[in-house]
Design a protein around this nucleic acid. Structure first.
Lengths: 200, 200
DNA sequence: CGCCGAGTTGAACTGAATCAAGAAACGTGG
DNA sequence: CCACGTTTCTTGATTCAGTTCAACTCGGCG
């Protein structure tokens, strides 16, 4: 944990909001960057965590563990993404999910007053925030639609299309977990596709 | 379409916000109630619809249609729920989904200025709005987790638990569509469960 | 080198889908 | 109130996508 840094968060906000560096700095000076090593947990199921994390560097995942001990990835969060456990941070309930670093990472730990502070400094912050939430909803809706209607192959293809960079950064078994298939199945899907594209 | 009414929307807001009847009336007087007959569409795939609908009476569904012509229900919206096509209403893109009445219904048609108007009248409106969005995200997340991890039976049980009233109001085939299984499978799941509970 | 975790491949299995009849339930009009 | 057609639900037989379990390959790394 250190005081300097959060450069990504700075530029994120200065591009989105009409705030100058000084104003942003005023708010951000209260917050610390937390460094995580690969595989380190930020939140564990059952815990309370009232922070929202902004990923400065690295890559995290949020996932659940079912009765059979299998992991299911709800989201990946690379640089410039926010990640939090909403049950816990917003509704003060124990977390249903785990959040873990998949690479050495740096996250800014934002607290519950952050939104209020930002809203005071920048009148448009609230709008940006709402837009972020709406975007996220759209994204989740789309994923539900995929899970309801698409085959393993179609889901994989959309993932490749949508997150080419994440594809390269996480083990294949985690992509499988995100898509809701077993690693073995994903391996076969890929084999199939390789055959097709090389066609002939 | 008529001018009077929106009584549910009125009480919804007066319970959520510190606004008196007069203030609420001032904003709502601009909006009309639209009556829908069973099966009528509010939005069709590919259309643009910039309204947000508040369900006063009745029940609607939002659904997609896949390449094979199968319908997949993304959400049900009974009384006191908001329903809209976010691509269309928020991001001015053609709608990817359909919205249709499953019963004779009445909805209040809110436009893009509604949020602004309400925010002016009530300082806490924005907070209520954000909370609504956060809740929705939580809900969608939970559904994704179910789709990733739970069997047809488990999904059905959670649906019964969560939406007992909707269960009674929609054909079983639509519950199946919401759960991501075929009507035939749902029928068999229910048969199984009936056997279990009556158990010897 | 030899271990070790990630990915692949194979063979058997299974939950759910598909296709095709029937049986209830429902509303409408006689 | 019953007969009728329509839609919804159930049931059965079969198929299939994806899972499971187990063995094997490969690439990195001490």
């Amino acid at each position: 944990m250190q005081r300097s840094g959060h450069s990504f968060l700075r530029s994120y906000f200065s591009s989105q909001l009409q705030m100058d560096e000084a104003q942003i700095g005023e708010v951000l000076s209260d917050y610390r960057v937390k460094r995580l090593t690969k595989d380190e947990f930020l939140v564990r199921e059952g815990e309370y965590c009232h922070h929202t994390f902004f990923v400065e560097q690295g890559l995290l995942r949020q996932f659940s563990i079912d009765e059979k001990g299998k992991e299911h990835i709800l989201m990946f969060a690379p640089e410039n993404w926010f990640i939090l456990d909403r049950e816990s941070a917003l509704f003060h309930q124990p977390s249903a999910y785990n959040i873990q670093a998949l690479e050495d990472s740096e996250v800014v730990m934002l607290d519950e007053q952050f939104v209020e502070k930002m809203s005071e400094k920048s009148p448009s912050f609230t709008q940006v925030n709402i837009r972020l939430l709406q975007n996220h909803i759209l994204h989740l809706q789309n994923r539900i639609n995929m899970l309801l209607s698409a085959s393993a192959e179609a889901r994989y293809l959309q993932f490749v299309e949508m997150y080419p960079n994440i594809l390269l950064r996480v083990p294949q078994s985690m992509v499988a977990s995100y898509l809701g298939v077993t690693p073995e199945s994903l391996s076969r899907v890929r084999k199939q596709l390789a055959g097709k594209s090389t066609g002939a």
